[in-house]
């Protein structure tokens, strides 16, 4: 049994024009100290997945079903009171934009101390000592002065270091990092990522890294999920997926990397764009953009249009694709769920 087990997570948004399903049948697990990457285009549901783990999705979003088991407890349906004891304490988060994440009118020290005091019965002085220690761990110069400074007095990279320090304050089991380096200067990105990796390894903290940077995923994580239109479409050891992507979408992502293009020619891209969640195509949501909806002999593969693909095992990976299933088994895989 892993530390975190997410099964068939189903998240919906109750909009005026009806319910939109932001996540469907998302399942994954995370072992203690393991690092998992979640990749996909914008709008694939990566952040929704991250926020729904701690039930932090904003209204009108809600968890419609599924199970989130963490260390023997079920988080889906848990009371706000009990969830609060887990948030920031056993599972903490790092947000995307360090310029927006810290409260502008509270000092760094206050924002660190309040977090400690929310979870432990300790004096302000003890809390300050712990905060200072964590600031040293994230290699902030002159941490003592930082405690009394306000966010606007610090640079973006510095603020993200402080947010990492806050995430580590209570020695959590898991850190969920939602695109932690996207908003940073390119030169700072590598530094912050290296720091995060180092601290997670050192303290044996599990990491769920949400990003669209495949380079970062391959350097940092051991396993990865590829998401498309609210579903997981490929899952497995990072190395295997990066070296030999099975799903046409993952292959497209790899090909789109600038390194994959021939110098002097146009960059590769996946034609079209991610469908709106309220108007998902029938069958496999990727089929309108997929180059494999026709078989090698030119015959269309009906299943791609009609049936949502189920996972098939391919080596150590799981892939949700009719084409892959056909190559492996000689017949298309049928989903549990029919097309709506």
């Amino acid at each position: 049994m892993s530390l975190l087990n997410v099964t068939d997570l189903d998240v919906r948004f109750a909009l005026r024009q009806g319910e939109v399903r932001a996540l469907r049948n998302v399942s994954f697990s995370l072992d203690r100290g393991e690092r998992l990457g979640i990749v996909g285009e914008s709008g694939a549901g990566k952040s929704v997945a991250a926020f729904s783990l701690l039930n932090l999705i904003a209204k009108p979003g809600f968890i419609a079903g599924g199970s989130i088991r963490f260390d023997g407890q079920e988080l889906n349906g848990m009371s706000e009171r009990c969830l609060r004891k887990i948030r920031g304490n056993r599972i903490s988060m790092i947000f995307q934009d360090p310029m927006m994440t810290l409260n502008p009118v509270l000092s760094i020290g206050e924002q660190m101390v309040e977090c400690l005091k929310a979870h432990r019965r300790i004096s302000s002085r003890e809390a300050r000592t712990i905060a200072l220690h964590k600031l040293q761990q994230v290699q902030i110069p002159s941490p003592e002065t930082r405690l009394d400074q306000y966010p606007h007095e610090l640079s973006g990279g510095m603020r993200q270091r402080i947010i990492i320090a806050i995430a580590l304050l209570l020695d959590p089991d898991i850190i969920i990092a939602d695109e932690p380096t996207t908003a940073l200067d390119v030169t700072i990105q590598a530094e912050i990522m290296a720091l995060l990796l180092e601290l997670c390894e050192k303290h044996n903290v599990g990491l769920i890294l949400i990003t669209h940077d495949l380079g970062v995923v391959s350097q940092v994580t051991q396993r990865m999920l590829v998401m498309y239109a609210g579903r997981v479409i490929e899952e497995g050891p990072t190395r295997e997926i990066i070296n030999d992507p099975q799903h046409p979408y993952t292959q497209g992502l790899m090909n789109a990397l600038p390194q994959m293009a021939t110098p002097g020619e146009r960059l590769n891209q996946i034609p079209g764009s991610m469908p709106s969640l309220s108007k998902l195509p029938s069958g496999c949501a990727f089929h309108p953009r997929c180059g494999f909806v026709k078989r090698a002999d030119g015959q269309p593969r009906r299943a791609c249009h009609d049936v949502i693909p189920d996972f098939v095992e391919s080596g150590n990976c799981r892939v949700a694709c009719h084409m892959v299933a056909e190559m492996l088994n000689g017949e298309p895989s049928l989903a549990k769920e029919e097309t709506p």
Binding site: L54, I86, S92, C115, A118, H119, I163
Partner: peptide, 8 residues
């Protein structure tokens, strides 16, 4: 949102 994620 971040304050909520901190368990405040």
């Amino acid at each position: 949102k971040f304050a909520r994620a901190k368990g405040i």
